[in-house]
């Protein structure tokens, strides 16, 4: 497949994630939209790695393998991030009995 298609698919998924972060007030949904953005970037990294592999396979048999390993590390970091983030959201829910991010503006008072 031409790399253009993957670029535009990833850009569209990323922008849907951005729009979700801006339009929702539920902290958990906002978090899920961040995951959506991470996945869009992962898809683009894999597509680029396969593009690079096809272009330079004659020189280096393992060309493009770094991109896929970066995706692996991004998944690992995302898993750690989700566990800490959900713990913070649960703590916030215990204190305010709500997951509405607009309640968090009391931090400024």
């Amino acid at each position: 497949m031409p790399i253009n298609y993957y670029i535009f698919l990833s850009v569209a998924l990323f922008c849907i994630g951005v729009a979700g972060v801006l339009t929702r007030r539920n902290a958990i949904i906002i978090f899920m939209c961040v995951e959506l953005m991470l996945n869009a970037v992962n898809l683009l990294l894999v597509a680029f790695s396969k593009m690079h592999h096809l272009a330079t396979v004659a020189i280096n048999r393992n060309a493009g393998i770094d991109g896929q390993l970066f995706v692996f590390f991004i998944i690992v970091v995302a898993a750690a991030e989700v566990s800490v983030g959900l713990a913070i959201i649960v703590m916030m829910y215990r204190n305010t009995h709500s997951v509405d991010v607009n309640f968090l503006n009391r931090l400024k008072h």
């Binding site: 497949m1 031409p2 790399i3 253009n4 993957y6 670029i7 535009f8 850009v11 569209a12 922008c15 849907i16 951005v18 729009a19 979700g20 972060v21 801006l22 339009t23 597509a47 680029f48 396969k50 593009m51 592999h53 096809l54 272009a55």
Partner: peptide
């Protein structure tokens, strides 16, 4: 929010649509 997301999409697509990637194929 939707307009902001759509504007980001518009900017990225406008920047990337003329990129010289016609011969690049993802295997």
């Amino acid at each position: 929010g939707v307009v902001a997301g759509g504007a980001l999409l518009l900017v990225l697509v406008a920047a990337l649509k003329d990129a010289d990637l016609k011969n690049q194929i993802a295997q």
